[in-house]
């Protein structure tokens, strides 16, 4: 009788509990100085790019154009030649500049720290004392990491939008297919691109979470995740490996630029999202298998 009552008492407030757990998890994540510093660095990238382009094109020329620098389109991240004509392009340039390294590195740090950091600080067992269950704790941790992916991407996009509006003219823009779209639609596409970039990090987040369940040291998990990221990025550049490259989580990252075509070219975008879902499923379930089965000693 008393057992059943206890079980019922534990089970009734489940939705609220999950929400409370998630909220406390989000607060812990976003209150950390480390997280704030990472977001600060990310926000600084568009500022730097914007000022650099502004100085370079102070005489009214366009960046990367005549006399601007060598090969056509060879210099700098995608879209950079358009930034001086329309500030909205700074959003795309900044995302293209941060997606290969800065953004995933920040996500790798947060994801790697998720479980291993708690274990390293000796707080994991106290979290598990709460009647949430390991599966739910893991899901909450993953949700917090995903929230960080989105927040980090939006920080870059919003910072770029603000800097672009301050330093460069705004108005109708030309898609890379040569057609014109209005500023409102351009903003809509910028938002869509930011969401796509955030979704591109889902796979890496799951990978980082899995690594995080393997070790009790937060630093080791972060280093492993970021190391894996760099390794995969390098392998993705080796032409002899072209047969396996479509299965690297970073392979289709830059496909977000396809949203700027008219009509939008969906093939690679869909592949990217499918690949991220696959990584999330594989490494998410691997993290679950490991985390629910392991002995918590710290």
């Amino acid at each position: 009788m008393s057992r059943a009552e206890t079980a019922a008492a534990v089970r009734t407030p489940r939705p609220l509990w999950t929400f409370g757990l998630l909220r406390s998890e989000l607060l812990t994540t976003f209150r950390r100085w480390r997280t704030l510093a990472l977001l600060g660095v990310l926000a600084a990238v568009p500022v730097l790019v914007g000022i650099a382009v502004r100085i370079e094109t102070g005489d009214g020329g366009s960046f990367g154009g005549p006399g601007g620098g060598g090969e056509a389109g060879g210099g700098g991240p995608a879209f950079i030649s358009q930034v001086s004509n329309n500030g909205l392009f700074l959003v795309f340039t900044a995302l293209a500049a941060t997606l290969p390294f800065f953004l995933p590195m920040a996500v790798g740090v947060v994801a790697g720290d998720a479980i291993a950091g708690e274990a390293g600080a000796g707080t994991l067992r106290y979290l598990l004392v709460a009647p949430a269950g390991r599966t739910r704790l893991l899901l909450t941790k993953y949700a917090a990491v995903l929230a960080f992916c989105l927040a980090a991407t939006l920080v870059v996009a919003l910072s770029a939008l603000a800097v672009g509006a301050l330093l460069f003219p705004l108005g109708d823009l030309t898609t890379i297919s040569g057609t014109r779209i209005g500023y409102a639609e351009g903003l809509g596409r910028a938002l869509l691109i930011a969401l796509t970039v955030a979704a591109s990090l889902v796979g890496l987040a799951a990978l980082g979470l899995f690594v995080s369940t393997l070790t009790g040291s937060g630093i080791a998990a972060m280093a492993t995740t970021v190391g894996l990221l760099i390794t995969v990025q390098i392998l993705d550049q080796i032409p002899q490996l072209h047969a396996v490259q479509p299965y690297f989580f970073s392979h289709y990252w830059l496909s977000f630029a396809d949203l700027m075509r008219e009509p939008v070219y969906w093939d690679d975008l869909v592949r990217n999202l499918g690949l991220q879902a696959l990584y999330a499923a594989v490494f998410g379930s691997a993290a679950w298998a490991r985390f629910t089965a392991k002995d918590i000693t710290a």
């Binding site: 366009s62 154009g65 005549p66 358009q82 001086s84 004509n85 329309n86 003219p169 108005g171 823009l173 030309t174 040569g178 057609t179 014109r180 008219e262």
Partner: peptide, 13 residues
């Protein structure tokens, strides 16, 4: 029809 409309963007050479 908009596929074939082209106006050179600002600042283009």
């Amino acid at each position: 029809a908009s596929t074939f409309d082209f106006t050179p963007p600002e600042g283009a050479k």
